[in-house]
Design a protein around this nucleic acid. Structure first.
Lengths: 187, 187
DNA sequence: GCGACTGACGTCGGTAACTGACATCACCGT
DNA sequence: ACGGTGATGTCAGTTACCGACGTCAGTCGC
């Protein structure tokens, strides 16, 4: 007899995704999400700073994957190679088994501007963090910012393709192709 | 004797910027903004879909500047050159006289995550629009998306520098330097 | 084993961002 | 003169949050 079921944040996230996918984001109230797992609205907002945030639970793990990727790059390589390493690490964060879940989640986000805004902000923060890691390796500010933003752009485009219905390639494979196209574009 | 003072949206925007700059965004209520120009909260929300939007009044003009820039590019030039033309047009949208106002506005945005989210969303929409214009010129989808996103990235970084205290160069000048650095990075 | 303490939760009341429905009233065309 | 139009006001309602406080099973010192 435990007092509370454990893992409240995870249960709330799962319930929220299901409700958002069926009823829609705006048509789902925070109180409903909480009630569906036996909690109150107040508890929901103790775990998540706002209603949108419940869909972004665990984002710090992706950030960490990028940073780990930066660390795997040998010293004294060019900024792009560092970014390439970070992209590879990020790709391994999304194995193919995760694709169905990612699709559902993304379809919810795609249907709501407020959620798109939050996602863009998360990606922008990720880019800033990545730029900081590059600067810590001695890259000058402008180059670090450009490399980080370009890396996140590549990641975003590759992720969008990875999610597409019928897409078979791995995220890593798509990333390298998009990166190649970027080099071709600016060359 | 007119029934209402004309230009309600503009007056609301100016009043909002002043109040946000002094009291802060969250500490300013929509009703206060409206009252400060002799209107009601309801009227505020008739002109702006939400409280944040009042700071982005006129954004469509920037979008149009980008599109006009695309049109100035001669046919059959490379996507980058088209983007370069769009960046030049965007730069002429921000003459140096506008810098002080832009600084105040940006400092308000920088101090509030909700406003940053909205700004990122506007830029993302702009990138999508730009990509659409490139596709209309016959550029393939991936290249168009990459070129557009990279162009917006360059614009964003250049704009940030242009705003910096003590910065003297024109936005156009900064843009070309950032673009050059991007080419150097991927080359 | 007993009592203080802690941490996750519930309850309650409040603020402010929006929204829909309806009324108002100068102006404009006929 | 008169009906239509459009920008505005009024009002009541929903919901996302937030602060303060109460609750109670487990835990830890003694």
């Amino acid at each position: 007899m435990v007092r509370w079921e454990p893992g409240a944040p995870g249960r709330l996230q799962q319930a929220a995704l299901e409700l958002f996918a069926t009823r829609g984001f705006e048509q789902t109230t925070a109180a409903e999400i909480a009630q569906s797992v036996g909690l109150t609205e107040r508890t929901f907002f103790r775990h998540f700073s706002d209603k949108r945030e419940v869909l972004f639970y665990g984002q710090h793990l992706l950030v960490q994957a990028f940073l780990d990727g930066v660390d795997t790059a040998p010293p004294d390589v060019s900024p792009i190679e560092v970014v390439t390493a970070a992209l590879a690490a990020a790709a391994s964060f999304f194995p193919d088994e995760r694709r169905p879940h990612a699709r559902v989640r993304q379809s919810v986000i795609d249907q709501n501007p407020a959620l798109q805004e939050r996602e863009l902000h998360k990606l922008a923060t990720l880019a800033q963090t990545l730029a900081g890691a590059l600067r810590a390796r001695g890259v000058d500010e402008l180059t670090a910012t450009l490399a980080a933003e370009s890396g996140i752009t590549v990641f975003g485009i590759a992720f969008t393709h990875w999610i597409r219905e019928g897409e078979q390639r791995s995220l890593a494979g798509i990333e390298t192709e998009v990166l190649g196209q970027l080099r071709a574009l600016t060359g």
